[in-house]
Amino acid sequence: MISVVLDVVGGLLLVVGLGLMTIALVGVLRMPGTYSKLHAQSLATGPGVCCVLASSVATENAATISYAAVGIVFTVLTAPVASHAIARAARRRGAPAEPR
């Protein structure tokens, strides 16, 4: 029973994660300007990647799940830094936008 539940949860998380990444791809192509594209990109590198990694619960393998947990922790800590570095570089290179 537990195995079936984990399969369903894992499958749902995988579908949600891949869906978020697909929408993020559409956003990166459609959004205007560097900063706006970064919003779409952070949808993929944050919730998208975390959902895909969390779908590892379906494997029921402790080693795989623990690696995925470490991956989620480091993704949560590093993705904002990468996004900030790109945004800061864009501002220094003169990306058009005045603070309000």
Binding site: R30, M31, G33, H39, E98, R100
Partner: peptide, 20 residues
């Protein structure tokens, strides 16, 4: 936040800008 970004990805962002 994800819901807002999804809406903006599928349509156009309402009024993007920098805020202190």
């Amino acid at each position: 936040g994800s819901a807002q970004v999804i809406r903006c990805c599928l349509r156009r962002p309402p009024d993007p800008g920098l805020v202190w």
